[in-house]
């Protein structure tokens, strides 16, 4: 359906914006390494199911793309364009996010099974993975426009999945409570950012937090 397609497209675009921004400016200023490391964890724990679960060629290719691009981005950030200045303001304690997501995944899962716990963990972790990046934005008070486009496209992906889930619930009777709940949590975390993005960036102002 259109929402899912638009969501996936926006997910894809967000990664391309980020890669393009890093490659062109040859800099990772303003980008949170911690958020990027969390995404590697999210993609690895959710998408390694491609080794034992086949959905479609599209699904497999997308999973491979998200795993490899997220690892590549972390590689660029650590080895190629290392930025100690940005690292110094990237101080969000992610061990709490990882630990909390792990505990939640043990409590909330469809079956107490390795694959299902990993799946649940990835959903919880994804819902909060942007926090170090938003925290960094808040500390610096402003961001490059491209960075804000990246965050927007990434947030749009899960937000667009919400109408997709409603659509699938109506048309197929399919409900994934975990994905829906964590997707809503994720969208709420983004809501403040979306609001500022709409008011500043789309109207041509510099992205500055009020």
């Amino acid at each position: 359906n259109i929402f899912r397609a638009a969501g996936d497209l926006s997910h894809l675009i967000s990664i391309l914006i980020l890669l393009n921004t890093i490659q062109k400016s040859r800099s990772i200023a303003g980008i949170s390494l911690k958020t990027q490391i969390l995404y590697v964890l999210v993609f690895l724990t959710r998408y390694l199911d491609l080794t034992y679960r086949y959905v479609s060629i599209y699904n497999t290719l997308m999973k491979l793309f998200f795993i490899s691009s997220s690892i590549y981005i972390v590689y660029l950030m650590i080895y190629k364009f290392k930025n100690t200045e940005t690292e110094q303001i990237d101080t969000f304690p992610i061990e709490y996010l990882i630990g909390g997501s792990f505990i939640l995944s043990l409590i909330f899962n469809y079956k107490f099974q390795f694959g299902e716990i990993l799946w649940s963990f990835s959903l919880w972790l994804e819902s909060v993975a942007i926090l170090p990046q938003l925290f960094m934005l808040q500390r610096t008070g402003e961001a490059r426009t491209l960075t804000t486009h990246y965050i927007f496209a990434l947030g749009a992906y899960r937000t667009l999945y919400i109408p997709n889930w409603i659509f699938r619930w109506i048309s197929e009777g399919r409900v994934d409570y975990l994905a829906i709940f964590t997707g809503i949590v994720q969208t709420i975390i983004y809501s403040d950012f979306f609001y500022i993005y709409y008011h500043r960036v789309l109207k041509g102002f510099k992205f500055e937090l009020p």
């Binding site: 479609s56 998200f66 469809y110 079956k111 299902e116 999945y161 997709n164 399919r174 994934d176 994905a179």
Partner: peptide, 10 residues
């Protein structure tokens, strides 16, 4: 038991 939804999304 609980029904596991098919994990066919990204």
């Amino acid at each position: 038991g609980k029904k596991i939804p098919n994990h066919d999304e990204l």
